Amino acid sequence: LLEYLEKDSFTKDEILAIKTEDAGLTEHLEAIKQAYGFGYDSISELIEELEGYLKSLNERLDYYLNIDFDGRSVVGDDPDNLDDRDYGDNNVMPKNGSIHGTHVSGIIAAVRNNGLGSNGAANNVKIMAIRNTPNGDEYDKDVALGVYYAVDNGAKIINMSFGKSFSPHSDWVRDAIAYAAKKDVLIVAAAGNDSKNTDEGQYYPNDQIGVGEEVGDTFLKVGATTYDYGSGIISGFSNYGKSSVDVFAPGSRIYATVPDGKYRFLQGTSMASPLVAGIAALVLSQYPKLSAAELKQILMNSGLPVVKKVSLGDDAVVPFSELSKSGRLVNAYNALIMASKISR
Rank of each mutant, 00 (worst) to 15 (best):
Y4R: 11
T11C: 07
D13M: 00
D13H: 03
D13F: 00
T20R: 03
H28T: 10
L29G: 08
Y36K: 06
G39K: 06
E45D: 13
E59W: 05
R72Y: 10
D77N: 13
D83P: 00
Y87T: 03
D89T: 11
M93L: 09
M93C: 11
P94K: 08
K95R: 15
S98K: 15
I99M: 12
I99T: 11
T102V: 06
S105Y: 00
G106L: 05
I107R: 10
I108Q: 03
V111H: 07
N113M: 05
S118Y: 01
G120W: 01
N124G: 07
K126M: 12
T133V: 09
D142C: 13
A144F: 04
V147S: 01
I157A: 00
M160Q: 14
S161R: 00
G163M: 02
S170E: 10
R174D: 05
A176H: 13
Y179W: 10
A189T: 14
G192N: 09
K196D: 14
T198M: 11
E200R: 10
Y204D: 06
D207A: 15
Q208A: 15
I209W: 07
G210A: 08
G212V: 04
E213H: 02
K221F: 02
T225S: 14
T226F: 02
D228N: 15
G232P: 02
I233C: 04
I234W: 11
N239C: 03
N239Q: 08
S243E: 14
S243Y: 12
S243Q: 04
S252C: 04
P259A: 10
T269L: 01
A272T: 01
P274T: 05
L275Q: 14
L275C: 03
A277I: 07
I279T: 07
I279P: 11
S285F: 01
Y287M: 04
P288F: 15
M300Y: 01
M300D: 01
G303A: 14
L304E: 13
L304F: 07
K309S: 10
G313E: 10
G313P: 03
D314N: 15
K325Y: 02
A332D: 12
N334M: 06
S340W: 01
